[in-house]
Structure formats: C-alpha cells, structure tokens
Nucleic acid binder design. Structure first.
Lengths: 193, 193
DNA sequence: TTATTTTCTTGACATATGTCAAGCGCTCAA
DNA sequence: TTGAGCGCTTGACATATGTCAAGAAAATAA
C-alpha cells in the first residue's frame, strides 16, 4: 500500500482494490517554503493532500491592519479552499507553505470522477464533510467558552509537535491571541511544571 | 406550493413534482417556549426545519460555570445536532425553543430515503453541507479578527430582526461577550446614530 | 390590573489581553 | 565564520472586556 493509499484509507474505509485506483487520480506536487497553494482572490480548483510539512491559511482583517491565521494544516490532512473549489468563488484565504511540503493534488474534474471508481463515494464524502463541520462547531464553542490559556492548553495536548515546527506568532493568531500573550501563557505553563 | 416546499426550494433547486414528495416525508411538530428539540447527552435522530420561532443551541463551559450559546436559529432554517444525527453520538448541545415554534421534522431513516425521491439528492446534500462548513469558517475568522463591537454590528446588519425577538443575553453569549458588554456596545451605537 | 419574576442597564472596579518598544537569540546566506 | 534578519521574550503601560451589585424596565403570571 502506498503512502497516499494508507492515508486515504485512514480517512475513509475503502476496499484495497479501489484504493490503488483512487490514489492514481492524484498527482504529486512539491511546494518550497513560502510558495502558495492558493492565493486570495484567485480561483482554486484543486484539493491537496498534505503528505508532510505545514501549510497556513491566512487573510488580512477587514481593515487591512493585520494578517489573521485561520488555520495551520499538518501532514496527513487535506488542504482546500472549499468555497472556491465547490462554488467556484474567489478564494477567501491565502494558503501558503510554512515549510517545504509534499502533496498529492487532484483537480475538481477528477474529484468528481471518483464516484466511478468508488460507487459509495458520495456517502464517504458526506461523512467527511460532516466531520469537518462538527470540528468547526467545536472550534467555535472553544472560542466562546475558553480563555486564551485554555485554548493554548488544548492545542498543546492535541497537537504538541506543531509547537516546535511552525512560527509561534502564527499559532498565536490561529488561537485568537497576540504573540506576546502566547509567549506569556507558554512561560507560565512551563514554570508551573 | 406549501410552505415547506417553498422553503426547501429556496435551499435546493428541486423540480416542482419532486417537492411535494419530499415535503410529505416530513412531519409537523410544535414546541412551546422552553421545550427541548434535543437534550445534551441524548441521541438525536431527527432533523428539523424551523418554520417560525427561535431555537437556541447551548451547553455549559468545561468548568460547568456558565451556559454558552453556540447558536440561535431563526425560522426558515434547518435544526440538527448533526454529530448525533450522522454519527449516532451523544448530543453535544441542548437545543431548546426560545419561543413557541412550529417545525417540520424528519427521521434519520426517512432522510436516507430522500434519494429515492430525488436522485440527485446526494449532490444537493453535499452542497448544503459545504455551505454550512464555509459559514462556520467565516464565523471563526470573525472571532479571530473582529472586536466585540464589530461582531455586534455584523449581526445587526445581517439579522436585525433577531435583536427584538430573543433575550439579548443569549445573543451576547453567541457573539462571545458578556451581557453587560453587549448592552454597552448597543448603547454606544444607538447614541452614535 | 397588580404582583412577581426575569431581563436589561448602569456604575465602580478587576482582570485578561493588547500594544509598543527594546533586547536577545536563532537561522541562514554570503 | 559572521553579519543581517527574523522571531521570541520581556517590561511598562493602555484598553477592551469581564465581574459584581443595584436598580430600572419589561415580561409573565395571578
């Protein structure tokens, strides 16, 4: 089983024989640090599967004063500006490689042909989208109910590796706090241990 | 065209002849103010379409100190604890009528039979879920990039009617601020005009 | 209607978090 | 190896927002 098949199999329960077909629909792409997967306002007609590295979603706030990091994706996850991909609208975010990255990429047209390989694909896609939606609901609840320190802790417990691998200022922004607050929370929790 | 057909037709582009069939799969349900559509920890196997009234999603924060309003749905929208509905997990939220409400309700089993009435239902459902996901991404971006006052203003411009129809304390919570801050922002913007 | 409860507002004050500015310490390229 | 940037930390201070308590207003019940 190739790496991509392994990953996809983790997301969806798919029969071995179909996995190879599915995997063959993707194309290997590399991004070097700083390169863009999508630029804001452009149209993005692809979905990427991030094999390794980190990719940041960001945009300016409404006044153009500061860059806000919407999300940082780690290896093993899908990457897409889903609004642009699905509704052919302008991208809301820049999606940029924070490190050198390797991806598997698939075009919109190809994505829509997956159903020919895997008949129950619509169901799997639905479950995938639902899972994404539920994750976002939980993320909103976290912002409504938790302090900056609690949000930091949650990240630390959920995804500790990321803390050594991407600029902390971007993690701070993704968690909705300033880099200074992030640094202080971090210090406090270090000393407490 | 009945009310439900009219609503559904707004969400999805569906042929007239299919609409009646689809609508007939729903059941009329009323809730009086204070009644629950779902209680937290229970299993919810239905989706509701809110004809009129307001329904609040809420749960306690992690310490059990305060109730947090995740969302308030207005008439003309679907209501569901989607995680419980799709993955048969315990509900994360209470979903409670803030006013007397009329709904159309459909069970999980019935929902899965819609495809027999409308063959392209999986595609419509996917578009619907994607739209929900995009909405949540935008809501998170709002929390990362906007002040309390800006979030209030956005609600005021997007959905002004809601401000006279549900307790402001719940709107405050949904926007991630205290009732006092909500009240002060409100006063400030009233005076400014 | 009147009584009772709930919700909203307001002031005084507390606290979390943001801002600014300086210094330190990496990293990376020459 | 050595600058030159960039990113992180820290202190001093500013500000947004939260908390508490009281009273006013509105909704609900009797």
């Amino acid at each position: 089983m190739t790496e991509l098949e392994n990953y996809i199999s983790g997301y969806f329960g798919i029969a071995q024989k179909d996995l190879a077909n599915l995997a063959s629909m993707f194309e290997e792409v590399s991004l070097t640090k700083g390169e863009y997967f999508v630029k804001k306002e452009q149209y993005s007609q692809t979905i990427g599967f991030l094999r390794n590295g980190f990719i940041r979603y960001y945009a300016s706030d409404q006044h153009g004063n500061k860059e806000v990091t919407q999300w940082i994706a780690s290896g093993g996850n899908f990457i897409a500006e889903i609004s642009s991909f699905t509704f052919k609208t302008a991208s809301r975010f820049n999606i940029q490689a924070l490190t050198d990255c390797q991806l598997y990429v698939i075009s919109n047209e190809r994505w829509n042909e997956i159903v020919n390989v895997i008949p129950r694909w619509p169901e799997l896609e639905k479950l995938f989208l639902t899972k994404c939606f539920v994750t976002m609901e939980n993320r909103i609840f976290a912002h409504l109910s938790m302090t900056a320190e609690e949000r930091y802790l949650e990240l630390f417990e959920t995804n500790p590796e990321i803390l050594n691998q991407v600029p902390l200022q971007h993690l701070a922004s993704m968690l909705g706090m300033s880099p200074e607050t992030f640094s202080r929370v971090r210090k406090k929790l270090m000393e407490a241990k």
